[in-house]
Nucleic acid binder design. Structure first.
Lengths: 186, 186
DNA sequence: CGACTGTATGTCAGTCACTGTCATCAAACG
DNA sequence: CGTTTGATGACAGTGACTGACATACAGTCG
């Protein structure tokens, strides 16, 4: 076995998730993660900025931005954003078991929740940029993006917590309808 | 000068903000903050859970919850929530200089932004609880709270960034109107 | 006034996340 | 086969944060 086993990053991600599940996030040291992946602590920090980042990636954001950027012009911005989340939700649904495990780890640690929130904020910022590029002005662009995040957050909570798993994209759509009802004031 | 100078916590908060402004958050050590406050590093951690927490308090959350809990029943939930934020905004407006300094420090550091986001999430959770206690059911309660946070976030950004300072509560109200417009789909 | 108690602070040792630096090894290339 | 490039290892160091114990101040009671 050479020094160059393939997919070091992936091995670190898997080892980290396993250990976070087994003993908890705080009780796991980076040295332990690296050892299980057959690497050293220093190498871990070459692949991930910190101990938390190993649970997060930017694939969701890229997916959402691409989706909104490619939406038909006639679709209302809020519907384009939520439709993008529905697409992402369908993908998450295909890996529900992984999503459940990962979310259980995050729910058990405030530091990980912070990281998740800033990732969502980054997505909101990227979506607002995309909407502006499509001609929407501020503050509408920012608010539409934030509204989309809120809808997704609520729907995700429901999807994760419900035992009889309902269709995630459907939950997202229902969440949007509820937001429209709630804000439909005079 | 005895060991018992008054208001240790307040001295730590002020020393921390000063140093974060002077040399930046990361370049400031907790030992330096404690020294400027006439205390030790260990005492800092008895007053604040970590180096970031010294910039945050829960007074805003308590204020908002009290306001929403005391709102008239006939007022729509989203309006009660936003009215609460308008009240909080008026208070922040009275300390605009402090708000600007504090926000400049936070904007310069991702870790502080994370902490700010989880504080806002905590507020959203508390407001949702309050709305539920007033008879609103989920997911409406959670969505209303999240919508209020979104409105506040956008309005706050504008209030901070604009040189000719417009009335903050007014910005909040306008932000809500914009959200209503944006979500007023079919 | 003096002992007693509770709480805030000081002291010290220790763990661990994270970083800078340099050495080393594998693969690709000419 | 030598060179180069990039990923990894080895190691020392800083600083955030914690646990355990000692100490000093403030209030109370006799």
């Amino acid at each position: 076995m050479g020094r160059w086993e393939p997919n070091a990053r992936g091995r670190l991600e898997q080892a980290a998730l396993e250990l976070y599940i087994e003993r908890g996030f705080e009780q796991t040291t980076v040295a332990e993660i690296a050892k299980r992946a057959g690497l050293t602590e220093r190498t871990f920090f070459r692949h991930f900025a910190d101990k938390r980042e190993v649970l997060f990636s930017n694939s969701l954001q890229e997916l959402l931005v691409t989706s909104v950027a490619g939406a038909t012009d006639s679709v209302a911005p809020i519907d384009a954003v939520v439709a993008a989340f529905e697409g992402a939700g369908a993908l998450l649904q295909e890996r529900r078991e992984y999503s459940l495990q990962r979310q259980a780890v995050i729910a058990a640690n405030p530091g990980l929740q912070e990281r998740e929130l800033i990732k969502l904020a980054s997505i909101a910022s990227a979506l607002a940029d995309t909407l502006r590029r499509r001609g929407l002005t501020d503050p509408a662009a920012s608010l539409t993006a934030e509204a989309g995040i809120a809808v997704f957050k609520i729907a995700f909570e429901r999807w994760i917590s419900e035992t009889n798993q309902r269709d995630f994209p459907r939950l997202i759509r229902e969440s949007l309808d509820e937001l429209k009802a709630v804000t439909a004031g005079k």
